[in-house]
Design a binder for these strands. Structure first.
Length: 324
DNA sequence: AATAACTCCAACCGCTTCCAC
DNA sequence: TGTGGAAGCGGTTGGAGTTAT
């Protein structure tokens, strides 16, 4: 049963490559190219599996590879593309000359994920944790919402604890509007023995929010006209040039991206945000007339979402390998 | 100085996709 | 159209190096 192994496992060496092995592989490939990986180790005089040779070549020996630290702009590109494609490392790496999917994946797992968590952003959805929790509270009806909110708190436990205990975070005004932000600030400032109590308070606020009328809950949604830029509280200062680094459902609706990732992200309340926004726009026009301040503000928000500064609105010509 | 804890990344594993026949 | 082998891909692991206690 199962597949035939690509090589005799007993006769192949595993583990770290020696410089001598690297030389053998590099010089063989320089002469003969990379056709048929199964024959390469045999012909190059290596006791390695063909798969292992391929990996060593593509991830380390290839002359066009860039070794060393990722630059700020490379990190920005990874974050932007990850917000669109998720863990499609090869797709992301294709936009970074000299970087492999393994490089990108490792860098994401060891650095960028923590960086985003430290900024209060969920690295999976690219949304602020507080926004996710508030969204659970505002979009679901009790009693399911209570259980889901509890579960969500459990899911994000590690990220939240990392966020709260290791990194000093500037919630940029979140404290002034969001109850959850308030309690998170309390959590940061409280003594170690009081942390459990703070977690309980966060949970309590979630359940309280669930029981309140939706209108009374701070939405933390950037497309919500009642939420000012300060109340949205996106502390993106880690990437200085990413002031426009905002999550926006507009890109999904504008591009009609059929990828499973977009589809999975573009569900529930986030995907209907533009609909909600346009409905609100119409309603305000009816109530206040076309030139009222409120109507203008909504229009400005619409422009922001439709402009190129939105985080994952990468113009096609900016991509190394435009994706289809 | 010893060692425990943590970080990072190269390499491996197994599943999926591609392609020649 | 179906099949089998090769290549591609993403998740996971192991271990070397570094930092904290």
């Amino acid at each position: 049963m199962g597949r035939i192994p690509c090589c005799e496992k007993d006769n192949v060496k595993r583990g770290q490559w020696t410089p001598e092995e690297d030389n053998k592989l590099s010089s063989y490939i320089a002469q003969h190219g990379t056709r048929n990986w199964r024959l390469i180790p045999k012909n190059a005089g290596l006791q390695r599996c063909g798969k292992s040779c391929r990996l060593r070549w593509t991830n380390y020996l290839r002359p066009d590879l860039k070794h060393g630290q990722f630059s700020d702009s490379e990190e920005q590109t990874i974050v932007k593309l990850h917000s669109v494609f998720g863990n499609r490392w090869s797709l992301i790496a294709a936009q970074l000359p000299g970087r492999t999917d393994n490089d990108v994946k490792n860098h994401w797992n060891t650095k960028l994920k923590k960086k985003l968590s430290g900024m209060g952003i969920d690295p999976v959805t690219h949304k602020p944790f507080s926004h996710l929790m508030a969204e659970i509270a505002t979009t679901l009806a009790p009693p399911q919402a209570a259980h889901l909110a509890e579960a969500a708190l459990g899911c994000f436990k590690d990220e939240v604890l990392h966020l709260l205990t290791k990194k000093p975070i500037n919630f940029q005004g979140q404290h002034s509007t969001a109850a959850l932000g308030n309690n998170i600030t309390d959590y940061i400032n409280c003594k170690p023995g009081e942390k459990d109590e703070s977690v309980e308070r966060i949970k309590f606020d979630i359940s309280k929010a669930i029981q309140e009328e939706p209108e009374t809950i701070p939405s933390n949604k950037p497309w919500d006209p009642t939420a000012t830029s300060a109340s949205i509280g996106m502390p993106y200062s880690v990437f200085p040039s990413m002031s426009a680094f905002q999550f926006s459902p507009a890109s999904f609706s504008n591009r009609g991206d059929p990828s499973p990732w977009s589809q999975s992200v573009c569900t529930g309340s986030t995907c209907t945000a533009m609909d909600q926004q346009s409905q609100l726009h119409e309603k305000l026009e009816e109530e206040n007339g076309d030139d009222s301040e409120a109507t203008k503000e909504i229009r400005n928000l619409s422009n922001i979402f439709n402009s190129d500064c939105v985080m994952w609105d990468l113009p096609a010509d900016e991509l190394m390998n435009p994706m289809v």
